[in-house]
Nucleic acid binder design. Structure first.
Lengths: 208, 208
DNA sequence: GTTGGGTTTGACCGAACGGTTAACATATGC
DNA sequence: GCATATGTTAACCGTTCGGTCAAACCCAAC
C-alpha cells in the first residue's frame, strides 16, 4: 500500500503530462530557452506542480532523458540479438539505430544540445556512447585492428555520425535538398546509403 | 576621414576584446547559458560598453559567427583550387575541412548548438552547408547518380558528419577512448581514417 | 460528516536577465 | 583654450527566471 502510493507519484497522469510537454519543448528549442513556466503552461498545469513532481528544472530534464535511454539500450540489444555474418549484423545495427532515432527524433537533438554546450548530461551521454561503441566493436570482431585509423572506434564514430546528423541537420539541409530528409522517402534513401556504406567499407577491409 | 572613423568602431580594440570573450564563452557553454554580464566581465569591460559596440546580444553572436564564415569559405576554396584526380581532390577537401575545424574548434560547436535548438542562425547555416555540398558534388563529378542512395548529397552528409562529430563529440568520447581525440595524435588518426574512408568509397563506386 | 493525506493553486521571493540613460572621461580639430 | 565627437562608466529600469509556501481543494476512510 505504501509502495503503491510511492509509485503513484512517479507514474501519475500529471507527471507524464509534464514530462511529455517538457520533452516537446526542450527538444524544439533547447533546455536553456525553455522556462519552467513554458513547460507548465504547455502541460496545462500550475507551475508549482512541476516542482511538486520534480525536484527542479534539471531533474525534470534528466527524467526526460531517462525515458529515452531505457528504450535506446533495448533497441540496440534487439538489433544485435541474432547472429549472422558481419555484414548482416552491421546492417541490423544500422537499421535498429535509424528506427530508434526516427521514432524518437528529439533524442539526438538532446544529445547534440548537451554535447555542444557541455551540459550536465554529458557524462551520461559519454557512457551511453561507450556502450554503443562496444556494440560496433563486437560486430566488427577481429576484422579491424585494435588501434590506428582502422580501429573500431573510428568506424563507430563514422557510423553514428552518419546516422545522427541525418536527423539533426535535416532542417538545415532541407532547402538545399529538393526533398525533406525526414520524410519516409528521405529516411529510406538514407538507410539505403548506410547499407551501401557498410558493404563498401567491409569490402575494403577484407581486401587489406 | 569619415569612413576611417566609421571603420574604427568596427575594428576597435574594445570590440575585438568583446568578440573574443564572447566567442570563448558562447563556444564553451552555449548562447543561452551566457549573459552579457559574463561576456563583459571576461572581456574586462563595462557591460554597457557591449551595447555601445553591438546592438544587442543576438547581434553580438552574429558578429562572432560572421568571423568564421569568411575564413570557412576561403579555406574550402583553397582546398579545391588545384585540380587532380577525384581521390586527390576529396583528400584535399577533407584535409582542408579538418584543418579549418581543428583551428576553429568553436565553430562546429556553434553550428551544432544552432541546429539542435533551431537558433536564429539556422538559415545562414543552411546556406553554408549548401555551399559545402556543392564542393562535394563538384569533386565527385559524374561518378555518382543525381538522386538515390548514392547521390552526392548522401556522401556530403556522411563526410561532413564524420569530420564535424569527431570534434563536437570528442569530450564525450574521451573517457571511452584511451587517448584524447583532440590531441595532435587523435586528429591525425581521424584524418587517416577519413582518407581511408574516401578511398574505400571511391573503390566501391568505381566497381559499380 | 468530519478528519486527514495526497494534490493543486495563486501569490510571493530574491536573483539575474537584457537593455537604457545620463553623466563623466578622453582625445581631436580649430 | 575651447568646443565637439567619441569612449566609458555606475546606477538604474522593467521583466523574467527558478524556486518556495501556506492555503485551498479533493476524496477516500472512518
Amino acid at each position: 500500500m505504501a509502495r503503491r502510493r510511492a509509485k503513484k507519484r512517479d507514474e501519475s497522469v500529471r507527471a507524464n503530462q509534464i514530462l511529455t510537454a517538457a520533452d516537446a519543448l526542450f527538444g524544439e528549442q533547447g533546455y536553456d530557452a525553455i522556462s519552467v513556466r513554458d513547460v507548465a503552461e504547455a502541460a496545462g498545469v500550475n507551475k508549482a506542480l512541476v516542482f511538486y513532481y520534480f525536484d527542479n528544472k534539471e531533474a525534470l530534464f534528466e527524467r526526460v532523458m531517462a525515458r529515452y535511454y531505457a528504450a535506446h539500450e533495448q533497441a540496440l540489444r534487439d538489433a544485435l540479438a541474432e547472429d549472422g555474418t558481419v555484414a548482416e549484423r552491421l546492417h541490423r545495427l544500422m537499421d535498429g539505430y535509424v528506427d530508434f532515432i526516427a521514432t524518437h527524433q528529439n533524442f539526438p537533438r538532446f544529445v547534440q544540445q548537451q554535447v555542444a554546450s557541455r551540459g550536465p548530461a554529458l557524462t551520461l551521454i559519454g557512457e551511453n556512447l561507450a556502450g554503443l561503441q562496444r556494440f560496433i566493436e563486437q560486430a566488427l570482431g577481429d576484422l579491424v585492428p585494435a588501434t590506428g585509423p582502422l580501429a573500431a572506434r573510428q568506424f563507430f564514430l563514422t557510423f553514428s555520425a552518419s546516422v545522427i546528423n541525418h536527423f539533426t541537420y535535416a532542417e538545415a539541409l532541407a532547402p538545399a535538398w529538393g526533398t525533406d530528409p525526414l520524410s519516409a522517402e528521405g529516411i529510406a534513401e538514407r538507410r539505403a546509403h548506410l547499407h551501401w556504406l557498410v558493404d563498401a567499407l567491409l569490402a575494403a577491409l577484407e581486401k587489406a
